[in-house]
Structure formats: C-alpha cells, structure tokens
Design a protein around this nucleic acid. Structure first.
Lengths: 187, 187
DNA sequence: CCCATAACTAAACGAGTGTTTAGTTATTAA
DNA sequence: TTAATAACTAAACACTCGTTTAGTTATGGG
C-alpha cells in the first residue's frame, strides 16, 4: 500500500532505554533521542506518540532485561542465599555496559516528584510490587516464618535493594559488597 | 554611598534551599527562584553569581540545618544506640515541613551524572565524608573493634543512610522504621 | 504503470531556559 | 542640594525544549 518502515521499534527502543538509563528522563532530550535511536523526530512521534510514550516503552524494555535476573531468583531454591545472589547479580547488571548508571526504575523514582505523570508512577509502583512478591515467594521457602515476619523482611529487602541501586552510582564494589554482606549478616 | 539592599542574603537563601530540596536542581528554574526568594533576577545574580551559585549556597545552608542532628550524634555517648537514634531523627528531619522531600544531598547525588559540575560534586563528596567521620568517631567508642571493622561498619552505615534518604521519598514510616530496625538488628 | 498512502526530511512552532542589559529609583557622602 | 552609585524593574538576549507541519520520497495493490 505504501512505504515500509526503515527501522524496528523493538530495536530503537533499546537504544532509547539505554539513553534514559544513563541520563534520566528530564535530561534526555528529543534531540538526543533522535541521534541515539537513529531515526527522525517524526518517526519517533509516529511510533511512540510523545517523549512520555518513548519512556514508558523504555521502562517495559528495561523490565524485560531485568527479568532475566528475576527469573533466576524465581527458580532458585536456596532461600536467603538465592536472594543474596540476586543482590550481587544486580550490581553486575548495573555495571554491565557502563559505570555508575544505577537502576532505571530507582533513578526515575528518585527523579520524579509527587506531581509526576500517573502512568509513570504506576509503572514504577507496579515494578516494585512485582519484585517484592518474588522476594516473598523466596522467603516463604522457610516454613518456620509467619506471614508478618515475611512481610517485614520483604519490605526490608525492597528498601535495601532501593538503597543498593542508588549506591551503585556512587560507591565502589568493595563498599557495595560490604553493604550486601551486612544486610544478610543475621541470616 | 548608594541605595541599600532590601533583603538579607541569609534569609532568601533559605527559601532557595527549600525550593531546591523540593524540586531538585534542574527542575528549579530561575523564574521559580525569583518568585520563592521574593527578589528580582538581577538581585539573585548580583548576590550569588548564577544558578549554580545559588545552589552551592543552598547546600551550605542545608548543611547548617542538618548540623543540628549531626551535633546531637557527635555528643552522644551511647555508641550504636546513638547512631540508631540519628537514623530515626533523620526520618523526622526529612518530613519536617512536607512529605517525601528526602535529603537534598542524596537527591542531588541521585540527580547529577559523572559529568556534572565539579564544585557541586566536591560539595557532595565532602559532605558524605564528614558524616562518615562522625560515624567512625561513634563506632570507636567500642574499644574492642579494630580499625578494619570500624571502617567496614562505617561504610555500611553510610550506604544505609543513603538508602534511607532515598526511601523516605517513597516508603511509609512503618516500612522505614522496619528498615532501621533491621539495619541495627545484630548490634 | 500509476496513484493512494505511509514514511521520510527538515524547518518552524510557541514556550521556557539561564543570563544580560538598558533604564529607573533610592540612598548617602560631599 | 547635588552628584555618584548601588539596587531596583522589566524587557530582551540567545538558546533549547517538546511538538507539529509542510513538502518530498518510496512502496505496492489495482
């Protein structure tokens, strides 16, 4: 019927995701996205609607990437040891391609305010809740713990994870490892 | 010799600091600063040079504010218990006037990248180091600990503090208290 | 082959950014 | 009282932002 697209949306969004990951939402401009994604502004807008659309799609893309780690954790049967491994794996994940990018989700949560876009806030909340549920699932491998304890420990681990994400942007590996060891000291 | 200033720099900078604290560095515009500080752009520029100047002065101002907590910790002789109290006090500090502002230092550290302004990065690093030194001083109250242990624990506490600051923007008090209790569990 | 149509290019949009500057007002030493 | 000067007001600066749009190019069904 008409001309064909010269790019794949699932390919260019990966590049957009990496740009947002490195620079944050506000700092990443349409101009930068244009250059990094390798397509014209017109194409970006026709594929993703607007900047927010590109970002929301980038969040989905990030989630897929992180899911490899999450799935490893899900299938782990080592209880707390598996969780600890997830924390270590996460450090490598954040340092995979570049130093000090942190976690896209945490970075965004730290960047936006209360009056931020609802869809973005929802995506972040949902992401956090999903991870917490996996934590709970692993913690329940220990049948001796009651639900209240599990809930408390899951909350603690989620916040610790949140802190770790921020910390990867600033502290060195020795300090980060030391942090993880202290978190899991009494288990 | 000439006309007198109609404002006090130490007064208007407090207002600027609160604005940066609420909105972050980039999001806070000169227009917003003008309105919040109650003085004209010309006056802002003649008093502080530029936006960065206003921010650096705001950081000093924040440090003074936080010093009340730090000094309480410094004079504490309760060892770990004093540190734990500092963590609790810090939560109240971040929620003093408004919900979910976090910590200006941590917020800034999370916002800026590696290529950010050197003076700002230096100010943040110095701030963190100073707090760590106070942590070390308190930890040394326990004479049985060797220097390596103290260094490790101080690093752990600094990163935990960093995580707590971020967490205050998102998690509720029960979760935060639970986080602190878990941090200090084995002491 | 041709034309409807989707995808491309590139320029322009209005609004907002940090910063500067020309012009006015008020103060005080001489 | 006056002249020098610092502090004020407000408009303009050049630039970037996210977004739109007019014009061009390529595709494929009839």
């Amino acid at each position: 019927m008409a001309r064909k697209k010269e790019y794949l949306e699932e390919e260019v969004i990966v590049k957009a995701m990496n740009l947002f990951w490195r620079n944050g939402y506000e700092t990443t401009s349409m101009q930068m996205l244009e250059k990094e994604m390798g397509i014209n502004k017109f194409s970006i807008y026709s594929s993703f609607g607007n900047k927010k659309g590109v970002f929301l799609e980038s969040l989905k893309c990030y989630k897929q990437k992180l899911n490899k780690l999450i799935n490893q954790l899900k299938t782990s049967e080592n209880g707390i040891a598996g969780l600890k491994q997830y924390f270590y794996d996460f450090i490598e994940f954040t340092k995979e391609t570049e130093f000090g990018k942190g976690c896209l989700i945490t970075n965004t949560a730290n960047e936006i305010g209360e009056d931020a876009d609802e869809k973005i806030k929802d995506a972040l909340t949902k992401f956090t809740d999903d991870v917490k549920q996996v934590f709970i699932q692993i913690l329940k491998q220990d049948k001796t713990k009651d639900n209240a304890t599990i809930e408390q420990q899951a909350d603690f681990l989620i916040i610790s994870m949140f802190g770790l994400s921020s910390a990867t942007r600033i502290f060195n590996k020795i300090q980060l490892y030391n942090y993880i060891e202290n978190i899991f000291k009494n288990n």
